[in-house]
Design a protein around this nucleic acid. Sequence first.
DNA 1: TTGTTCCAGCTTTTT
DNA 2: GCTGGAACAA
Length: 723
Amino acid sequence: MDITAIIDSLNDAQRQAVSAPARAMLVLAGAGSGKTRVLVHRIAWLIKIEHIAPHNILAVTFTNKAAKEMRGRVEDLLNISARSMWIGTFHGLAHRFLRQHNEEAKLPSTFQVIDSDDQLRLIKRLMKSMQIDDKRWPAKQIVWFINAQKDEGRRAKDIPETQDLYLKVQLSIYRAYEELCARSGLVDFAELLLKAHETLRDNAELLAFYRDRFKQVHVDEFQDTNTIQYAWLRLLTDGQDNLFVVGDDDQSIYGWRGAKIENMFNFQKHYPNHQLIRLEQNYRSTGNILKASNALIACNEGRMGKELHTDSGEGDLISLYAAFNEQDEAYFVVERIRQWVAEGHSRADVAILYRSNAQSRQFEEKLMATGTPYRVYGGLRFFDRLEIKNALAYLYLMAHKDNDAAFERIINTPTRGVGAKTLETIRELAKRDNLTLWAAMVELIRTEHFSPRASNALKSFAVLINKLIKASEGLELYEQVKLVVEDSGLLAFHKKEKGDKGEARAENLEELVNAARQFEYDAESAEGASELDVFLAHAALESGDAQGDEFEDCVQLMTLHSAKGLEFPMVFMVGLEEGLFPSQQSVDDPGRLEEERRLCYVGMTRAMRLLYMSYAESRRLYGKENYPRPSRFLKEIPAEQLQEIRVRANVTKPVATVKPKMGTVALGSSGRYKLGQRVRHVKFGEGVVLQVDGEGTQERVQINFASAGMKWLMLSYAKLEVL
DNA sequence: TTGTTCCAGCTTTTT
DNA sequence: GCTGGAACAA
């Protein structure tokens, strides 16, 4: 292969990054500027031009999807197998590393990865046994605390003792949780990273080996790394200047879960020989969309600085729609989509983006009513589903009878007459004699501790598990799964649940058998773990893409967060209202407000050709009617890039006649009454301005009065007092 | 063991 | 105002 295939298709900045002699590199890659492309081509360059062996290359991403895509694209470009290359998520790679070096990491070879759901259950149980009131210390907050500590690289012993009762209790649970996990060989997500870091740090030989092995380390979405992830990267590359990172400070939207945007600044300090390259040419959006996005993000302070530009034309203006209420907003959006589809476009090219999941319902209802296929992203993933977790728990327990979490999950699922009392007795004995729950149960059966009824229930459970173990010997993985699903009674149990729910669950169980059949066991990278174990770890680490009709032409609904990295010809950003977006919890904190602004920037830059933004003048939220002001972000977009769309609203039945108007955000001509303005009327009392219409003496306002309800008033007659 | 009722909580999400 | 979980009664 010659050099041209690798760099010909690139622009100057991209080419510079790909072929740079420098090993420490910070690529500031704007939205739609070909970020993944640079990474893929850089790796290809190293392999083909600099003759670095694939297995000397490490590339880290955040999601399995991104990892898969990168591997695929490298393979396509070079027409080689990239199997020996370490490409994966931080968690996936840490897991692989710990499997391989479980002794150095002081982990049992059978250690198991638990997901956040298991973690929460575990902590709830632990707190109960410690007799800590979960009203005062909600388990969720404890989990949050522990994970936040781990993300910062702190063990319980690293946190100084305090007098603060609140911290004290949290700390004591953290300590107990660490012990429990160590004893039962459980590793949560944050632990994977922390443990991998510690093992590498405290093991000179291991560290030297990997530092030598990875000639070049690449990181995607660098702005999303947290403290421990960056620390791990530094261990591998410090002093060697071989860290190549790609990121965009303007798209950092995960600060709330520990991502440190500062890592981008720290990188510049820690790798003084680095080269900085900006990718500012955008290949996605039209000029107007970019101008608007640039102006919006410019309102943030402390940016690394970057301005996107494009060669494609100006394109359409951004359309702004002021909806009467959330119903009207949904109606407008769905009507627009129908027009779009009627013009022969595809539904899959349209995305509706919202700030919070709860907003999806309005749109779903309207889409459903018009028979428009749609797909909602987010929500429960395949391996997170209750019935799937139940089935997996059977498999866990069969393979590892000491797995207490699995035991608890299925001891009475399907119900077999083991009540809370019985379980409590088992727990007590287990705790007293330091036994696993399984062993405690066996002991209690043996000593005939229980009433015949409870005893029989337990016996039938023990027999079932043992029978399943026997029967699954020598079977293929998918046959084992099939056996468990059917013979555990789970399938029958879920099938008889009423409604569609039961049916869906039964289907999912069958799908699990399918997933097992399609699962590819790679004995080489399994580091000695059995196929079942690898499958179970896979289920924890890779929650499975949201299921759905991938092949049907569907409108896409998702949160702004999950839209990152995607692009659509037509985008609707909805609910641009103060208190919703930016969210109420963010408005008082400048840092968090900036993150909201970045989120808005992410949303806008998803749009290729058409961008619609909308807000509702009235919105029902938590059962109360709200009259929010339009989002401040709308005011930060230059008026020249906006066109307002007003549907002549007849409250009962909006008719879609469009009257574009340049550069205004729904203000009356006098400018005296803003939407959401509180006013007082002599007769009707207090109310809120919802709409302003007409000009001069004809100017009238629609007001929602607290006591008198909705009224249209002529301004020249009504005596209104601005509050 | 199951069904009912009451009550808090209510951004964003990956692994 | 809706939902999920926990507490309680049958």
